[in-house]
Simulated assay, not measured.
Amino acid sequence: MHDQHSTVELPSVRRQKILLLLERDGKVMASALSQHFVVSEDTIRRDLAELHAAGLVQRVHGGALPRPKDTGKDFFTRVSETDEVKTRLAQLAASRVHNGQIVMFDSGSTTLQIARSLPSDIVITAMTASPMIAITLAEYTGIKVILAGGQLNPATMSASGHETLRLIESIKADLLFTGVCAIHPEVGISSLHFDEVPIKQAMLDSASHVVAVTTADKLGAVEPFVVAPCNRIHTLITERHVASGDVGDYRKLGLEVVQADD
């Protein structure tokens, strides 16, 4: 009896079946798909690349995940949406801030939510390259805000360039809330935007303790520009249920992993 996939199958049909498997399992791996469809891993990688280019999947190391929820949405759309998961994660992160600290806030909708979640009577010095985060922090009477200047990236609504780097490098922070586009235990932290990389690297170098706050869909994901290995993070705060990867992989790297209660 012939295998059901032994005959040549149109790529478009195979890709549709890959999407169905992804919907069912929450993640697909190139090696398993290669065996399932009896084609080479190179063929599967091309399939996943085409599906990623079409905005249908999120590529990760060795396979693919469902497309992130905010794909295709601009910054203002993301920050205006109410997300209970992000709110809970931000509250957990904000509880790590103590009076008298110097705290860096990376750009991003999640770090903006952390700024909104700080105790009303907190007394800290805060530094950020994000004008929106700076405005949010300025509403606290006990927070001294340092805003890094530079060229504004409309995609991230954050400054970058030599001026931004010089200011970041001149500060030694107690705590950094770093934004995360994607984090993979082997690849590390990666970004969709090239000009973010040196800014994020400088912030990592300038902070004594680094906290990354991310939803589960960014775990195991990979973006084009690598920022740093995972061990540059000290604490990872994420969701309780993680379909896209095993948090144990991050604990093995020495990270403190904190998962929000349901």
Rank of each mutant, 00 (worst) to 15 (best):
H2K: 07
Q4N: 01
L10D: 15
P11S: 08
K17R: 15
I18Q: 05
I18E: 06
R24L: 14
R24D: 14
V28R: 02
V28M: 07
M29L: 15
S31F: 12
L33W: 07
F37Y: 15
S40Y: 13
T43V: 15
L48K: 08
L51E: 08
H52C: 13
H52G: 12
V57K: 03
Q58C: 03
R59D: 00
G63D: 07
P66H: 00
D70N: 05
T71Q: 11
K86H: 07
K86V: 01
K86W: 04
A93C: 14
S95I: 00
R96G: 01
V97W: 01
G100M: 00
Q101E: 13
M104D: 09
S107M: 04
T111G: 00
T111W: 00
A115K: 06
R116I: 00
R116W: 00
R116S: 08
P119F: 05
P119L: 09
T125I: 00
M127I: 14
I133R: 04
T136V: 14
Y140I: 06
I143R: 14
I146E: 11
G149L: 06
G150A: 14
S160P: 09
G161Q: 02
T164S: 05
T164F: 00
R166M: 14
S170N: 11
L176A: 03
T178W: 00
V180Y: 05
A182Y: 06
H184C: 09
H193C: 08
E196G: 05
I199Q: 01
K200Y: 04
A202I: 08
M203A: 09
M203S: 04
D205Q: 07
S206L: 02
V213M: 03
V213S: 02
A216P: 05
A216D: 05
L219T: 03
F225K: 02
V226G: 04
V227N: 02
P229N: 13
C230A: 11
T235M: 02
T238Q: 06
V247M: 09
Y250D: 03
K252W: 06
L253K: 15
L255Y: 08
D261M: 13
